[in-house]
Simulated scan of single mutants.
Amino acid sequence: MDALQAIARRKSTRGFTAEQISDKQLETLLFAGDAAPKAGGTAGSVHISVIQNKELLGKLIKAAAQAFNEGEGFTPFYNAPTLLVLSGKNDTPYNGAGANVACAGENILIAATALGLGSVYLTGFLAAFSVAPELINEVGIPEGFTPLAGVITGYAAEKDFMEKEIKAGEYVNYVR
């Protein structure tokens, strides 16, 4: 699948099977995230924590549920087996940490689609870290980095990846 096909087929997946992605797929996703553009050309400005441990995923879900006053059954990760926590370096030039993380996340989403995986870009779960700040260490976020987003991925429970027509959207204007 070429890049434009992956962009056209990408969608947020809200249901996953329990099957874990392969190490080779994970390696490809991490390469895609690392290959993203970085504000100021700052290598090492994005850190990716790979969470595949069910116990730790459960702790993050519990803390996020507490932050949002949600009860049992709260599933911010839609049962995905892999969470990639994307953290930005606090001293990124031009305040580019958020942009760097967003670019890495988008690359990962497109790569996941190209690999036949489902994925979702997330930020809401980050509230878990305000309720349980010790989870920052458990997730492995290095000193000097702030968690800014996440991508969940795995095999989609529904395999409906309909290709969208690629065209300029209604929110585009031209000044020529």
Rank of each mutant, 00 (worst) to 15 (best):
Ala3Tyr: 12
Leu4Ala: 04
Leu4Pro: 00
Leu4Glu: 05
Gln5Thr: 14
Gln5Gly: 05
Ala6Val: 09
Ile7Thr: 06
Ala8Pro: 08
Arg9Trp: 03
Arg10Gln: 13
Arg10Val: 09
Ser12Val: 04
Thr13Met: 07
Thr13Val: 15
Arg14Gly: 13
Gly15His: 01
Phe16Val: 10
Ala18Thr: 14
Ala18Val: 12
Gln20Thr: 14
Ile21Thr: 02
Ser22Gln: 00
Asp23Cys: 00
Gln25Ala: 14
Leu26Asn: 07
Glu27Ala: 15
Leu29Lys: 01
Leu30His: 05
Ala32Ile: 07
Gly33Val: 01
Ala35Asp: 10
Ala36Val: 07
Ala39Glu: 04
Gly40Tyr: 05
Gly41Met: 03
Ala43Gln: 13
Gly44Asp: 08
Val46Pro: 06
Ile48Asn: 03
Val50Thr: 14
Val50Met: 09
Leu56Asp: 03
Leu57Cys: 06
Ile61Arg: 13
Lys62Ser: 08
Lys62His: 06
Lys62Leu: 06
Ala63Asn: 04
Ala65Leu: 02
Gln66Val: 08
Ala67Arg: 00
Ala67Phe: 02
Phe68Asn: 04
Phe68Pro: 00
Glu72Lys: 14
Gly73Pro: 06
Phe74Asn: 11
Thr75Ala: 13
Thr75Lys: 11
Pro76Cys: 11
Phe77Lys: 05
Ala80Asp: 03
Leu83Thr: 08
Leu83Arg: 05
Leu84Lys: 02
Leu84His: 02
Leu86Met: 10
Ser87Leu: 08
Gly88Glu: 04
Gly88Pro: 03
Lys89Leu: 11
Asn90Tyr: 00
Asn90His: 08
Asp91Gly: 04
Thr92Arg: 00
Thr92Asn: 08
Thr92His: 04
Pro93Trp: 11
Tyr94Arg: 01
Tyr94Pro: 00
Gly96Trp: 04
Ala97Ser: 15
Ala97Glu: 14
Ala97Asp: 12
Cys103Ala: 15
Ala104Glu: 11
Gly105Asp: 12
Glu106Phe: 06
Ile108Trp: 13
Ile108Pro: 12
Leu109His: 01
Leu109Asn: 00
Ala111Ser: 10
Ala111Trp: 10
Thr113Cys: 08
Leu115Val: 06
Gly116Trp: 11
Gly118Pro: 06
Ser119Gln: 06
Tyr121Lys: 02
Leu122Phe: 03
Phe125Asn: 10
Leu126His: 15
Leu126Pro: 15
Ala128Trp: 01
Ser130Tyr: 07
Val131Ile: 15
Val131Ser: 09
Pro133His: 11
Glu134Gln: 13
Leu135His: 08
Leu135Phe: 07
Ile136Cys: 00
Asn137Ser: 14
Val139Pro: 09
Pro142Tyr: 02
Glu143Asn: 05
Gly144Tyr: 12
Thr146Tyr: 03
Thr146Lys: 06
Pro147Gln: 04
Thr153Val: 11
Gly154Val: 09
Ala156Lys: 02
Ala156His: 04
Ala156Trp: 07
Ala156Val: 08
Ala156Arg: 05
Ala157Leu: 14
Glu158Asp: 11
Glu158Leu: 05
Glu158Phe: 03
Lys159Gln: 14
Lys159Phe: 03
Met162Ile: 07
Glu163Ser: 07
Glu163Pro: 04
Lys164Ser: 14
Glu165Met: 01
Ile166Leu: 15
Lys167Met: 07
Lys167Pro: 03
Ala168Tyr: 12
Ala168His: 10
Glu170Ala: 13
Glu170Asn: 14
Tyr171Thr: 15
Tyr171Lys: 15
Tyr174Thr: 13
Arg176Ser: 13
Arg176Pro: 11
